[in-house]
Design a protein around this nucleic acid. Sequence first.
RNA 1: AGGGGCGUCGUCAAGUGGUAAGACACAGGUUUUUGGUGCCUGCAUGCGUAGGUUCGAAUCCUACCGCCCCUGCCA
Length: 576
Amino acid sequence: MKEPSCDEKEAVERVNFIQQRIVGDLAAEENSGQVHTRFPPEPNGYLHIGHAKSICLNFGLAKKFAGACNLRFDDTNPAKEDVEYVDSIKEDVKWLGFDWGENEFFASDYFSRLYDYAIQLIELGKAYVCDLSPDETRKYRGNLQEPGRNSPFRERSVPENLDLFTRMRAGEFADGSRVLRAKIDMASGNMNMRDPVIYRIAHVEHHRTGDKWCIYPMYDFAHGLSDAIEGITHSICTLEFQDHRPLYDWFINQLDTLVKPQQIEFARLNLSFTVMSKRKLMQLVNDNLVSGWDDPRLPTLSGLRRRGFTPESIRNFCERIGVAKRNSMVDVALLEHAVREDLNKRAARYMAVLRPLKVIIENYPEGQVEELDAVNNPEDESMGRRKVPFARELYVEQDDFMEDAPKKFFRLTPGREVRLRYAYYIRCERVEKDEAGVVTALYCTYDPATKGGSSPDGRKVKSTLHWVAAKTAISAEVRLYDRLFSDPDPAAEKDGEPFTKKINSDSLNVLENCQLEPALAAVASKQTVQFERLGYFIFDEQDSDSEKPVFNRTVTLRDNWAKKAKAQQNQNRKKK
RNA sequence: AGGGGCGUCGUCAAGUGGUAAGACACAGGUUUUUGGUGCCUGCAUGCGUAGGUUCGAAUCCUACCGCCCCUGCCA
């Protein structure tokens, strides 16, 4: 082993602006030296890699400063939320490797306390019941250029407000007929301060509180106060909430809470060649453009998991992208790098032929089978060795043979000798074709003296191929996944084209007749393996059955040859 | 009558007045029984622009330019 630990340490030591803030707070002895964060998803959808950034940040900060991080479900809008989502969120956070221990909370647990806070606000003369319709409210709010106007209900007396609000809660009024509003400033340049709604009426069953409530607090009111209730010191959220901070502080200050949490905003993650917004992901799923929330092409955590991404690689990715306030678009190549780096060290190697081409070793005895010795992982000897059966009839990759090979092509071609990994040197003697001229089989000879893959006379061979013995091979389905979109920024829709039109038509390629070495039958599920020379693949538990295993490609290996070949092709095309 | 943010390599991102880290990507080389991995090398006289302050400016000042967010009884 070299010293990657040194690099890792440096990466961990990197201090972002939030850490600097916290260090400052600690030095100033704010919050009696405590650091308490929270990850606050609304249970209305599945988590994606953007959430992973937030999870790593919040739990990471808690760990770094010896504090705690709560998992809090921000479930204040029952119309959109469901337990299905809270379960998947918990599963995903756990899978990512974070443990919230006892600190699992729900904003809905605080409905009573939030209601009491609202009463206090009314008593303070800082909130009023407003009878304006949603449409009228919007008109009174003004716009970016012009100030708003006070609601005609703004000057209601405290007793009247108390009476009305109590009756709102009691269910006397229809949805949309009244709201409770904070009395702040209808002329504020900040739209959020123009007497924001803090409670609305919704006769909707809540997934946790049932029909106990028919009024629900709005985000701005519930969030900061929930932070205060939980003793959160640093409430970290994304940039679009910057304008909400004055309101966040306003509630906390009016109500004089024990803890004064502070909101800090950072830039959300954007990844090239994918979309991250809940609305767009939802559309892909609903329009059946993908197979579901866990489609391996999606940036959802369930999709990435099914694709074969490891929690470690995602955490490492989040560490590398950093935390700042600049809107940015991270190259998906960095994510791919992170997973290759992790899997290179840990994935067991196997041989699998995805597009089989029959090879017959004419001078190899019919019926004979040899068990050859193979290494499971050249990066880690402790992973041991295994036996691979070799016989007269084999399969190699169609891509590994060319009848008329260009100069730089090192693989099989008539007359050339190559090495079969862990086996022998073979030479292609002749080719069998069908009527259409398609190559159907290769007739080769082997050199018995090269057993194991090296020649006693020291002669070199330019390439080593993976292979599988025909008789003992396992037949499998392999799904080759690629980027879902062909456009680096599909969400931009600059040209007026909807993002769904930018789906990469090559994002999924299903191969039915793949041939695997027999050891793959025993592969522990959920463990990503490397198919030598091809990439990393994971067994798909959902779609595999006893008849036929299914593997998903996580990512290809880096492939300089493919790159060169492609570049050359493009050049030829230009010449023509 | 507007308010709030942000501009450092193709992409992220350090830098907090002392002479532009690192990562990915890219390009070469080398090792190699994976065209993988590893290793080596190259890759911003430049920090949105223009002025100014200073012995010294990405960092301070001034003006301009560009991009993002805000007019839900969503979060």
